[in-house]
């Protein structure tokens, strides 16, 4: 067990993936000598060569499109999109090809492609560097969408994504890259928790707070603050957006009677909306209050001087909890 950052845990996961399967390839912009703009691939090209850690031309659709061809040849590409807001040039290849190839070929052609995307705000970046595009991908059948919230999950879930025979959009909460946590670098993947299962990080009785990625830390801090007011929050790290582990959330809401869903992405037609609908369908009579959502607004991601007003924080989470409790 070692204490390390999420960035280093992701790097270690990629190294293990490259070591354990020689069909694994990394491809992306600046991932070679530079090690990626966030240094997630630091040192990997030096150790595994330019043939397996590939600096690509500056073209996102090209990265995804060639990954499809490499997958058809039996490779297992792990591609890096430099920032969330730059994934859209590749949207057609992801939605029309990566997601649909397996079904179109009646299972003959698998697409074991991992699409790593640093996402979310909170780092004072310029436009297009702080977005949360998960709903676009979750809405597309054929894709899996997961996001770790801590270094250990980052280490395990990225390896699980690479090992998956389905395409996985792997969303890395970039503002948590430098958060530290304990990582068991010898963790056995076979016995690891499924990346598609939610994890209850804190038991509580007053209300359930469901979140993922960068908002997990925010929600855990909110739960600690609430405790001093005698409010006991159950915090669930969803970990996966598609598939969504609804049973774990429903079981929690049956106990607490209240649910607040928190994410950075705008609430309109977001993960919170889906979760609210499903929880309402499955445990309507357990609910003491409507499911409430805390998230971004229906605006473009604002200039960074305003991002603190846009992003959910501890106070906005607690405000929603108060409203749910007062209902």
């Amino acid at each position: 067990m070692a204490v390390t950052t999420m960035a280093k845990a992701l790097n270690a996961a990629l190294r293990r993936a490259l070591e354990s399967d020689d069909r694994v390839l990394l491809m992306g912009e600046d991932i070679g000598k530079l090690g990626g703009v966030f240094r997630i691939t630091d040192g990997l090209q030096k150790d595994f060569g330019e043939s397996r850690v590939i600096d690509s031309p500056l073209a996102e659709s090209g990265i995804l499109g060639t990954a499809v061809g490499l997958a058809m040849r039996g490779f297992r590409p792990v591609v890096e999109i430099q920032f969330d807001g730059f994934v859209y040039p590749a949207f057609d290849q992801i939605v029309s090809q990566v997601a649909k190839h397996h079904a179109r070929s009646s299972g003959a052609t698998r697409m074991p492609i991992t699409i790593r995307i640093p996402y979310g705000g909170g780092i004072g970046a310029v436009e297009h560097h702080s977005e949360s595009p998960e709903a676009y991908f979750a809405h597309t059948a054929g894709l899996r969408v997961i996001s770790p919230s801590n270094p250990f999950d980052a280490f395990v879930m990225l390896q699980q994504a690479v090992a998956s025979d389905d395409p996985v959009v792997f969303l890395e909460p970039k503002r948590r890259y430098w958060d530290k946590g304990e990582v068991d670098v010898d963790a056995d993947l076979a016995s690891a928790m499924s990346p598609y299962r939610a994890r209850i990080l804190r038991d509580g009785t007053s209300a359930t707070v469901a979140c993922y990625g960068p908002m997990v830390r925010t929600c855990l801090e909110a739960a600690t603050a609430a405790e001093t007011d005698g409010v006991s929050l159950e915090v669930i790290d969803l970990r996966s957006v598609s598939p969504l582990d609804v049973p774990t959330v429903v079981a929690s809401v049956r106990r607490t009677g209240r649910l607040v869903v928190v994410h950075e992405a705008s609430v309109f037609l977001g993960v919170g909306a889906e979760l609210a609908a499903r929880v309402t369908e499955e445990c309507f009579y357990s609910l003491e209050a409507p499911v409430l959502r805390v998230g971004g607004y229906h605006t473009p991601y604002p200039p960074s001087k305003l991002e603190e007003d846009y992003l959910p924080d501890l106070d906005r989470v607690l405000d929603a909890v108060d409203r749910a409790l007062a209902f």
């Binding site: 995804l64 499109g65 060639t66 997958a71």
Partner: peptide, 13 residues
């Protein structure tokens, strides 16, 4: 779309 798949396949070769 298939032109990129072709190039990827060729990179695999």
């Amino acid at each position: 779309d298939q032109c990129l798949h072709a190039v990827g396949y060729a990179m695999g070769i």
